[in-house]
Design a protein around this nucleic acid. Sequence first.
DNA 1: GTGGTCTAGACCACA
DNA 2: GTGGTCTAGACCACG
Lengths: 134, 134, 134, 134
Amino acid sequence: MVIWRVDPPDGEPVFAQIVHSVKRAVATGRLKIGDRLPSVRELARELVINPNTIAKAFRALEAEGVTVSRRGAGTFVAERRVVVRADERRRRFRAALESVLADAVHLGLSEPEVRKLFDAALKRFRFDEGKREK
Amino acid sequence: MVIWRVDPPDGEPVFAQIVHSVKRAVATGRLKIGDRLPSVRELARELVINPNTIAKAFRALEAEGVTVSRRGAGTFVAERRVVVRADERRRRFRAALESVLADAVHLGLSEPEVRKLFDAALKRFRFDEGKREK
Amino acid sequence: MVIWRVDPPDGEPVFAQIVHSVKRAVATGRLKIGDRLPSVRELARELVINPNTIAKAFRALEAEGVTVSRRGAGTFVAERRVVVRADERRRRFRAALESVLADAVHLGLSEPEVRKLFDAALKRFRFDEGKREK
Amino acid sequence: MVIWRVDPPDGEPVFAQIVHSVKRAVATGRLKIGDRLPSVRELARELVINPNTIAKAFRALEAEGVTVSRRGAGTFVAERRVVVRADERRRRFRAALESVLADAVHLGLSEPEVRKLFDAALKRFRFDEGKREK
DNA sequence: GTGGTCTAGACCACA
DNA sequence: GTGGTCTAGACCACG
């Protein structure tokens, strides 16, 4: 799977698309703890995007605890550390899921189709790793 | 279930929260085809939100085909009509789902927890209705 | 062809749909000069529409010179009388046509398709009658 | 050809006139895919119209898929993508065309005149471009 | 009464 | 700089 899924006219802000790309890559194992992300300038050149936008995305990732940046060395995938209380994280997940499911209904997807796509997606994500790996 | 889940400081634009509220209510059967939504002014009073903001949400809902508005009459839940191609709607759902799952991983949810919450949520949505009902 | 093409949730105001129905019927010969329209109450019952809305449409038709109403007798298709200057009517037609054609392009219709639909539609309209008929 | 055909007292809402202006300009090739529209504020100044009104028109254009807007960047003519089913788009075109033709009859235009104006107008529209161009 | 349009002006988010 | 959101308030069009 490709890491960078960035499409400026998509509607989602470009910096958010970068944030999502990294989070998806980490959550699916495409990026592992300790892996180094490209430098801001490098990535800006590759994706043809303003470096300020990349820098903003990286700042957001660090604020969320997904990455850590070490001066002069670069940005790295961080050890996963859970900060949110159990009920709070369930609440957030449920809310996000409900929006997605409501959209699915309005898009005209059937329940079996949704179930199938969910199962398929779920397989690609690594839930119980992160705290053990390097 | 309550229909209106609106919390201005939430970060998500208020009008989008209203849009989501209605889509969720329709998708879960809390609102049925032909049902009349509260009037713009009425809802504005109830939620303590500027009427223009409500009107904007209703316009967005109409543009998405979720409702129809009639001057002098009100705003109604529309017949559900599927317009998007099958592959396109799968693509959209998959993308949205992946973001939600990536967030779940980073929130520290476990796979069984996610599965359980998904199953529970799925039960509340009505996938195969809409084209027949009143 | 059916005369009354009225669909409240269509977006076009209901009274305007009635006006268009009558103008279309007259222009295609479905209604002829001197023909009597249904009474306001009769039509309101038939179309399940507020009588005020019908009355408003009939007022608009009379203002445009399409119909004449005779007290106690009803509303009748009027002798066609042209009031607009030649250049003005060409200007109006051109403007309306351009909007329709622009929409056709954005809808994805092809030029031959448009040409064909135009030719087919044109055949159904009676341009050079009206001043002669009873 | 001038792009902006906006006349506030015309009866048609100002924002709709702007929408039509852009659609016409794109459909006739006056604006090409990827072209940047004037900024909201710039156009507001030029047309002496409230920026919110311009913004509303641009939002409507985006909802119809004619343009894409990017925060911080501007509003651009979108790749043309056909979403509506073939029969549906024919139905819509036919309905709009019939209203225009009925009006033409009532305006007193002759059939040859209508035909001539149609042929002339048709030449100015680009039906089969859009998916390939820059 | 209903929704729709337009203006004016503040403030935010993004590139 | 760009577009987006929200408020406040006037006025219009429709049923």
